[in-house]
Amino acid sequence: MVQGTQMRRHLCGIQTAWTDAGRAEEAVEALAGTIEHDGLGHIIVFFSPAYDTEKLTAALAAHFPGVAVSGCTTSGGISPAGPIDRGLVAIAFPSRGFRIVADVLTQIARLDVEGAASTVRGLRRTLDQGRSDGGTNHRFAISLIDALANAEETVVSAVAWALDGIPLVGGSAGDDLAFSSTVLIHEGRVHRDAAVILLVETDFPIRIFKSDNFEPTSRRFVVTAAREEDRRVLELNAEPAAREYAMAVGLDPESLTAMSFAAYPLAVKIGGEYYCRSISRVEPDGSLTFFCAIGEGVVMTLAQPRDIVEATRAELAGLDEALGGLDLVIGFDCVFRRLDAESRQVRHRIADLYRRYGVVGFETYGEQYRSMHLNQTFTGIAIGRAQGP
């Protein structure tokens, strides 16, 4: 595990910094002492839910005056030196080579879809106005969403619609599997029931990606009773949900844990492709609460895992080849992938891959990719070494 405070400057000019400092003020002070302040354009931070968020935002504003800062709580950080179980990871974008505009969508549990789309269109117009003539520009969007608002599908649908082809990736804020308080920050303010949307234009070559390590089996479940507003499934195949699921995977319903859900994911088929729908917890009444929206009549398939190390290696190696060498990968990795890797005793091998390819990011309660909200997936933006004109 990472110890102390470190910083890395990447070829594109982005600085990544990370610390395992125990208090928010100490963490920001440590970062401020390692990050070069000249020419900073925007900083994204992923931080421990144990930090006092008000003190964190105040410290960031004090140490980085005039620099826009966005971020969220995590269930673990990913730094170029390895995983961070507590602390803070920062991605500091330079003004040169990167143009970033960002805003907050509020009250996302009751999202005004047209209002959200209008906000995103406004960001696009701002980015268009600042565009230099003759440049080779690549665009992408990042979403950071309060997972406990249970609104990712609505947010992603509205944002993707308004982006009009600009690819979106992102992650849902976590809180170390406590499911009690996930928090976002943006420009000195703390937000809940919200989403931060960032639009990025860069001169550097990029690829967005998604990777998973499961494949469907022949076992099917039909959701026969659900409370859709709570993402809670009461019955599968007309039987109590937890019991039916446990019987299918050969476990006692009383012994189901997050490790169980990570090892035996469920998936839905959309457009000929399977997407994971992870269970977050068993409720006292024997129902199952999910990380994704789920409704009555949905058919889910029990999935079985493939080699998570090989699947991840193949994805990163393919990106490395496509871009002529990876400079940096901003990644959003499901916390259940970590749990699965731990149960199979291969987390250190995943960490080695992330170090080799320069992955930085956080462990999420859900991942966004284009117009989809996903679970048990690794998504992100890969930035290549070659610079555009």
Rank of each mutant, 00 (worst) to 15 (best):
F290W: 12
F140V: 04
L184I: 14
E342H: 11
G76Y: 01
T57P: 01
L40W: 03
L60I: 06
G295I: 12
T119R: 10
D146A: 06
S181T: 12
Y357L: 06
F179A: 02
A102W: 01
S181E: 14
L177V: 11
T301K: 04
T182S: 12
T377K: 03
D340T: 07
R139H: 07
R344K: 08
I270S: 10
T217H: 13
G188Q: 15
D212V: 03
R277I: 04
V359Q: 01
R338K: 07
S287M: 08
S172H: 05
R220L: 10
R313T: 12
L316P: 00
G122R: 13
E239T: 13
L302M: 07
D20N: 11
L148T: 13
V169D: 00
A382C: 08
E244L: 11
E254M: 07
D340E: 13
E310H: 08
E25A: 07
I43D: 02
E114C: 12
A386Y: 08
I84R: 12
V299A: 13
M247W: 09
L31P: 02
L56Y: 07
V28I: 08
F214K: 15
D85Y: 13
F179C: 03
G82H: 13
G66F: 11
G324T: 05
S280V: 12
R220F: 10
A238G: 14
V67K: 05
T57L: 06
S118R: 14
F332Y: 08
V233Y: 01
L316N: 01
E296Q: 15
V346C: 09
A116D: 01
Y274E: 02
E36Y: 09
G22C: 12
L316D: 01
V196Q: 05
A90F: 11
C334W: 00
L88I: 15
L323Y: 07
G188K: 14
T119Q: 13
R356M: 09
G165L: 12
V67W: 05
V268M: 08
V183A: 14
G366D: 02
A242W: 00
E310I: 06
E215I: 09
G134Q: 09
T126C: 14
F261P: 01
V233A: 04
S48Q: 07
I294A: 03
F261D: 01
R9E: 14
R232F: 06
L40T: 05
T379V: 10
A17P: 00
E315A: 10
D128H: 11
E239V: 10
I14F: 03
